[in-house]
Amino acid sequence: MPKHLLALQEFTKEELLDFVYRAITLKNEKAEGIIHQHLVGKTVALIFEKPSTRTRVSFESAMYGLGGQVIFLSNRDTQLARSEPLKDMARVMDRYVDGMVVRTFGQNVVDELSQYSSVPVINALTDLHHPCQVLSDVMTVIEKKGDLDNLHVAWVGDGNNMANSWIQAAAKLGFSLTLACPEGYDPDPEIFSSCSEVASKPITLVRDPKEAVKGADVINVDVWASMGQEEEQDERLEIFKEYQVNADLMKLAPADAIVMHCLPAHREEEITEEVLESEQSVVWDQAENKMHIHAAILEIMLTKE
């Protein structure tokens, strides 16, 4: 297994499923009152250039739940804002902590930190990848739908970091994926091309969201303007207005299809209140599962030899 978790593509199918099934085990055992303390004496640094409520709380809760300690560092708390070389930061931090969880803008940040760090670097989000989130989403899909092999997943909206990681997950785990994105807002072309070439099931890019959801067991949606794209908000609202996941769109999908959103949701923009609060929505279980997948990731990455 790789030393660092930077992108899903770097892991085998078996390694990715190890994270997922360990998370399911930890979740079930926690519900039974079984508490693990596998990370006693371990400390992880959460280095967040991009703020997040769910990601921070879920990682902290996971680490504390396994007996470990957390040091949270926002942008103002590190030398990143003052242009300290990343290689210097990596070689100092790995003397202090047993792992770094990094939420930042450029993928180059986590790549360079991992190059110089002797402890695991875990990508909690970059503009290119969002591997931990998609692992928790895959966990939710398995809980709700069972075996992945015969599932068809739809992505509706921006071809962003979430879409990129879903493409990598599809290629590695063997489910079919259809992405509906407006022209000019496609997923990363290199990721799409390389994953499509090796995938056992089709990974397809279309323009019409109606085409994407037909026959879909899972329908994924995300905000239209991510953090750092606030200046594009009005333009994106106009471009993406046909990509809203609403009751009319859901009528084209199977009645037992589930709807996922990694949150925060902008109700009545990318998803309607009606759909978000419907019986088909699994977003609250999805949100909870971030904590369990983070526990599994931390346990595996910080204790493996």
Rank of each mutant, 00 (worst) to 15 (best):
E84Y: 03
P85T: 01
P85C: 05
L86C: 10
D88H: 02
M89G: 15
M89F: 09
A90I: 13
V92Q: 11
R95H: 04
R95V: 05
R95S: 06
Y96G: 00
V97D: 07
V97G: 03
D98Y: 07
D98F: 07
G99Q: 14
M100V: 09
M100E: 14
M100N: 13
M100W: 13
V101S: 07
V102N: 07
T104E: 04
G106W: 00
G106F: 08
N108A: 15
N108G: 14
N108D: 15
V109P: 10
V109E: 07
V110E: 06
D111F: 05
E112W: 09
E112K: 09
E112V: 13
L113A: 04
L113T: 12
L113C: 10
S114C: 06
Q115H: 05
Q115D: 11
Y116R: 03
S117E: 03
S117N: 08
S118W: 01
S118Q: 15
S118V: 03
V119G: 11
P120Y: 14
I122M: 10
N123D: 08
A124G: 10
L125Y: 04
T126K: 09
T126F: 10
L128N: 06
L128A: 14
L128Q: 07
H129Y: 11
H129S: 04
H130K: 11
P131Q: 10
P131I: 05
C132F: 10
C132T: 14
C132G: 12
V134K: 07
L135K: 05
S136L: 01
S136G: 01
D137Q: 03
V138T: 08
V138F: 12
V138P: 08
M139V: 12
M139K: 12
M139F: 11
T140C: 07
T140Y: 05
V141F: 00
I142W: 06
K144Q: 12
K144A: 12
K144M: 14
K145V: 13
K145L: 14
G146K: 05
